[in-house]
Write a protein that binds this DNA or RNA. Structure first.
Lengths: 157, 157
DNA sequence: CTTGAAACGGTTTGAGT
DNA sequence: ACTCAAACCGTTTCAAG
């Protein structure tokens, strides 16, 4: 759930190709890919396990269209937090099932959250909870009118 | 790649359980899950295809730890765009492989982008490209110091 | 729309290199 | 660390309910 250690990792062409395929389709067949790459399925299986074990691959997830599930309200919430308690605050807020991202930034605000809700009442409750937290000095919320793109896949290599 | 139609969708308990499992692990075995749920694997297979076909399930992806792949720079870029050209601008910027999210918002800025880069030079080039676009009036960029959470999974139901 | 059963395809293990 | 091959497991199809 949390982003872990920052240490870089060595990847050869087999790892890279495998990751690109798993990014494209996490349910892809290792056997078919192995044939395409002229390695054995067992090799890809080993590589995949190694990548998971090293934490490069954090998991395999379904991408859902949340608007079709009633989560029509996306919000970008900037939070000014009492400097001594930013880390505790971030851990707390990251546990909320509505929060998809928690970023630590510099500037007028300290933390930027992306969170999704089914309606304004859910958002309102969430914001009131935030402001009840004595560590929170102020918040500024932008409501998303339209999600043009939301895809965790960055082109690697 | 783009978020599609907003029409709500009817889901029964089988669909919901299946989606929750696919959110947790996109490579989960339908046979094992079918046994757990007392339905046939063929039913889950049909349901999964229906969910994909309806667009509720947009795809299955590997979640990667981008910091381990050298993408150590996450940025939140707010953009003020000439009102008549927001949609074209958004489509253009959504095509960039560095951009993970594009949100249309109200307020001082019109568009909020989340984008990932390997270094400040990549970010600089990206920002200069943005400002070259005559549709762009101004930008404000926050650099992410620490990504505390980044997980597309919202708790559904 | 669900099922059981079969056919097909995919993953995983382990011995050998 | 990779491969082969076998054993095991999972998916997909389809005829029938």
């Amino acid at each position: 759930m949390f982003v872990s250690s920052k240490k870089r990792v060595e990847l050869d062409d087999v790892d890279k190709k495998l990751m690109i395929e798993l990014l494209r389709d996490a349910r892809t067949s290792l056997r078919r890919l192995a044939e395409e790459m002229n390695v054995s399925p067992a090799t890809l299986h080993n590589r995949m396990n190694r990548l998971i074990q090293e934490g490069v691959v954090r998991g395999f997830v379904a991408l859902l269209d949340y608007t079709k599930l009633g989560y029509t309200l996306t919000s970008i919430i900037m939070v000014k937090v009492d400097g001594k308690h930013i880390v505790e605050f971030e851990k707390e807020v990251a546990n909320s099932p509505n929060v998809v991202s928690v970023y630590d930034v510099v500037g007028d605000y300290d933390v930027i959250l992306i969170a999704k809700f089914r309606d304004t009442e859910e958002l309102d409750t969430f914001l009131k909870q935030l402001l009840k937290n004595p560590r929170v000095e102020r918040t500024f919320t932008s409501i998303v009118l339209n999600t043009v793109k939301e895809d965790p896949r960055v082109r690697i290599i």
